[in-house]
Simulated assay, not measured.
Amino acid sequence: MDIDEGLMLRPDGRPGNPVRYLDLDDWHRADPSTVAAAAARVADSLSPTVGMATRRPPDRLLPLLDALTLTLAAPGVEADAADARQLVSVEDPRKAFEELADIVERHPGASIALGQLLRQTPSLGTLQGLAAEAAAYSMLLGGTEFAAWLAGRGTARPAETDLPLVRVRRDGGKLSVLLDRPERRNAISFRMREELFEALEIAALDDTIDEVELAGAGPVFCSGGDLAEFGTATDLVAAYLVRLERAPWRLIDRMRERVTVRVHGAAVGAGIEMAAFAGRVVASPDAFFLLPEVAMGLVPGAGGTVSVPRRIGRWRAAWMMLSGARVDAATALRWGLVDEVEGHDG
């Protein structure tokens, strides 16, 4: 595919060319100047550009690998590469690209916004990265892709309870914080977010607390944002400000060296996004991780475009976010998304 093609916008503003690919097997003999020129064009592209490799790319292609949104690699290529953070191992790179392209073509606005966001956030400070993410998220809340997802979801009723949604216990210098909404798989509602912020603020303001542990009650750690509350914001600018000012993940990042997150079962959306800010993430063997926001016409909105790339690189982060693929505990450990799997002998 011609990497110099633009978005080819249609009259309704939808791109006719929302994703492109580059077969890296064809580039093995390219000279360094040609590779550098291609890498510059890819980096300047608006559309996500996905590489495909059935053989290990030679070192001279590293600038191109770095510039691509991600590279889909045949089994064995990732393990054989000296620096594999740009590579995602799949059984069939061409089939995987076709599946990824189908997702991007159905959600081009969210996909393109995500691709550009991930090119910014790794080089920004935490607050600046969160601000960029929140701006993109708030913009997409007003878009047609999210509206279509809302229409397809139908009516959702938020669960009401007067019980605390976050429980806090202090034992000397250790503060234990528990997401306690198991009947909703610890989905983060507006109220839970506020309670979590207040709980973490205790540690942020008290330097006699030298250890913070965050966990979830019930069968899963956290299923992400409460879908029943999606689409209820009436002032998107206010939502943007609240997302920055009252973000528990900012507090986790601020005291990351003191924070351990224990993940079991599902860590979906906001669940893994906020956990990834912690200095230590411990997963149970049954834990799994996925980021489904693009399929909703959105981008991650709980800091994931900042925290996840810091751990696994922007390329694998792009794969998780664009594909919505489920990542198991073993892969998460190998990539660095978690620091330990309980019972893993290393």
Rank of each mutant, 00 (worst) to 15 (best):
residue 1 M to V: 07
residue 5 E to G: 10
residue 6 G to P: 09
residue 12 D to R: 00
residue 15 P to W: 11
residue 16 G to Q: 11
residue 17 N to Y: 13
residue 17 N to R: 14
residue 20 R to F: 05
residue 20 R to Y: 02
residue 25 D to C: 06
residue 28 H to A: 05
residue 28 H to R: 15
residue 34 T to G: 10
residue 35 V to P: 06
residue 35 V to F: 15
residue 36 A to M: 15
residue 37 A to S: 13
residue 39 A to Y: 10
residue 43 A to F: 11
residue 44 D to A: 06
residue 48 P to R: 04
residue 49 T to H: 02
residue 56 R to A: 08
residue 58 P to Y: 14
residue 62 L to V: 12
residue 62 L to G: 00
residue 72 L to E: 09
residue 74 A to S: 05
residue 75 P to T: 04
residue 75 P to W: 11
residue 76 G to Q: 04
residue 77 V to S: 04
residue 78 E to R: 15
residue 78 E to M: 13
residue 80 D to E: 10
residue 81 A to L: 13
residue 85 R to N: 03
residue 90 V to T: 02
residue 94 R to F: 13
residue 94 R to S: 14
residue 94 R to L: 14
residue 104 V to E: 03
residue 106 R to H: 08
residue 110 A to C: 06
residue 111 S to P: 06
residue 111 S to N: 03
residue 112 I to P: 04
residue 115 G to E: 01
residue 116 Q to D: 12
residue 119 R to Q: 06
residue 119 R to H: 04
residue 119 R to F: 03
residue 122 P to M: 05
residue 123 S to K: 14
residue 124 L to D: 03
residue 124 L to K: 07
residue 130 L to R: 01
residue 130 L to V: 07
residue 132 A to I: 08
residue 134 A to T: 02
residue 141 L to D: 01
residue 143 G to V: 11
residue 143 G to H: 10
residue 145 E to P: 03
residue 150 L to A: 07
residue 152 G to A: 07
residue 153 R to V: 09
residue 155 T to N: 11
residue 156 A to I: 14
residue 160 E to I: 08
residue 163 L to Y: 12
residue 166 V to Q: 03
residue 166 V to M: 09
residue 167 R to F: 10
residue 169 R to I: 12
residue 169 R to S: 11
residue 172 G to S: 04
residue 172 G to Q: 04
residue 175 L to V: 00
residue 178 L to E: 10
residue 179 L to V: 06
residue 183 E to M: 14
residue 186 N to T: 08
residue 189 S to M: 12
residue 189 S to L: 10
residue 198 E to D: 15
residue 198 E to T: 15
residue 203 A to V: 02
residue 204 A to Y: 14
residue 215 A to P: 07
residue 215 A to C: 12
residue 216 G to C: 11
residue 220 V to T: 12
residue 221 F to R: 01
residue 222 C to E: 13
residue 236 L to N: 06
residue 237 V to R: 15
residue 241 L to V: 14
residue 241 L to N: 14
residue 242 V to R: 05
residue 244 L to F: 12
residue 244 L to S: 05
residue 245 E to Y: 12
residue 246 R to Q: 13
residue 248 P to W: 07
residue 250 R to W: 12
residue 251 L to W: 12
residue 252 I to N: 02
residue 254 R to L: 13
residue 258 R to K: 06
residue 259 V to Q: 04
residue 260 T to Y: 11
residue 261 V to S: 05
residue 262 R to S: 00
residue 263 V to A: 02
residue 265 G to H: 00
residue 270 A to C: 08
residue 272 I to H: 10
residue 276 A to N: 04
residue 280 R to L: 11
residue 281 V to G: 04
residue 290 L to A: 08
residue 292 P to A: 08
residue 296 M to P: 01
residue 298 L to P: 00
residue 298 L to F: 02
residue 298 L to G: 02
residue 298 L to A: 00
residue 301 G to F: 07
residue 304 G to W: 02
residue 306 V to T: 04
residue 311 R to F: 05
residue 313 G to A: 03
residue 316 R to M: 03
residue 316 R to F: 01
residue 317 A to K: 04
residue 319 W to K: 02
residue 320 M to S: 03
residue 329 A to C: 00
residue 330 A to C: 00
residue 331 T to D: 06
residue 340 E to D: 14
residue 341 V to A: 05
residue 343 G to C: 09
residue 346 G to K: 02
residue 346 G to H: 08
